[in-house]
């Protein structure tokens, strides 16, 4: 096995007068779960399309398992779930899956067997009802997502590429997806997914890369990234009343550089040189009842805001994706 499932060196992609990805370098270790993080329009989908050789970079190199990404043999080892989902609406579920399997070089009878296994596993085929015989049209949205997911994994790819896999999933399907990602990792597969939701990434990923406006902001293992961004953060949880007083303390820039307010829970980044004890003292004096006050490593979300800048993100978030 090669060390890196994906090895990207200095790729750039321009669209009519606008650079979507600029000089990006990243390496995805084989067998890891990798998160490609960034606000909407950062260039995640463009990067993923280049990895899959759907579009070619203007410059730079991409190697997949040590081979150039345009090697036709490579595609059979990749599974891809695009950002927006859909399948041939008028086609029978089974036939769609078989078609997708054939495109990945799975032979007929083998494909049938795997389709059966998957349909049963995701309870699309029960003794009462075989949804495999229904048309895509007749399936609920959740079921269609399952079918699409089967299509991604049917040929047992070594590298699974998911573009915004959590968007539009209900909590149950989202949990099922997380379980599957973990299971794929246990089976030695490599998973890379893009998301603009940091919570999912923080829990699932071994490594991450944050990009914004087509450029890499930082990358590395989640542990390293968080350690690098120091211990200057405080988790604060409050009980009862007294919020108003606390709010004004948090606005004091001699103590607090930035506070992420989730109503009763705050993640606070201390101002340079500020003393955490002084902060605690002032909060207690304000009469608030403190439930938790703890020095923590910053969350990816914090790091993300810090690096990309809250304003930039909001502007981008409201734009198209």
């Amino acid at each position: 096995m090669t060390e890196y499932a994906i090895d990207i060196v200095n790729i750039t992609k321009r669209f009519a007068g606008h650079t979507a990805v600029r000089d990006l370098t990243l390496r995805v270790p084989t067998g890891s779960v990798y998160g490609l993080l960034g606000p909407n329009g950062a260039g995640k989908t463009t990067t993923i399309r280049m990895i899959l050789n759907i579009i070619a970079p203007d410059s730079g190199m991409i190697h997949i398992f040590g081979r150039p990404s345009n090697d036709p043999k490579i595609t059979e080892r990749l599974g891809y779930l695009p950002e927006e989902r859909g399948l041939y609406r008028k086609m029978q579920v089974r036939r769609v899956l078989k078609f997708l399997a054939e495109l990945k070089g799975v032979r007929g009878s083998d494909a049938d067997r795997r389709i059966d296994e998957w349909l049963e596993r995701l309870s699309l085929k029960t003794p009462e009802k075989d949804w495999g015989l229904a048309k895509i049209d007749e399936l609920s949205r959740g079921m269609q997502q399952k079918v699409q997911f089967i299509g991604t994994l049917l040929h047992d790819p070594d590298l699974v590429i998911l573009d915004e896999p959590f968007s539009g999933l209900d909590p149950i399907n989202a949990q099922a997806l997380k379980d599957t990602v973990v299971e794929l990792k246990h089976r030695g597969k490599t998973v890379i997914f893009s998301t603009h939701l940091m919570d999912n990434a923080e829990r699932l990923c071994d490594s991450v890369c944050i990009i914004a406006q087509g450029e890499k902001v930082l990358d590395g293992t989640v542990t390293d990234v968080r350690e690098e961004h120091g211990q200057r953060n405080i988790a604060l949880a409050l009980e009862g009343d007294g919020m108003a007083g606390v709010a004004s303390i948090l606005r004091d820039h001699s103590l607090v550089k930035r506070a992420d307010d989730s109503n009763r829970f705050f993640e606070i980044e201390l101002a340079p040189g500020a003393d955490p004890q002084a902060l605690l003292k002032r909060i207690v004096e304000s009469g608030a009842s403190v439930q938790r006050f703890e020095m923590i490593q910053p969350s990816l979300h914090q790091i993300f805001l810090q690096k990309v800048g809250a304003r930039g993100v909001e502007e981008r978030m409201s734009g198209h994706g």
Binding site: R49, L52, N53, I54, P72, T75, E76, L78, Y80, P82, E83, E84, R85, G86, L87, Y88, R89, L100, L103, K104, G151
Partner: peptide, 17 residues
């Protein structure tokens, strides 16, 4: 057009030229 709007095209394009 159907392949484009349902984004199946993208899945197919990731498998064949």
């Amino acid at each position: 057009l159907e392949e484009k709007t349902t984004r199946v095209a993208e899945v197919v394009m990731s498998s064949v030229p």
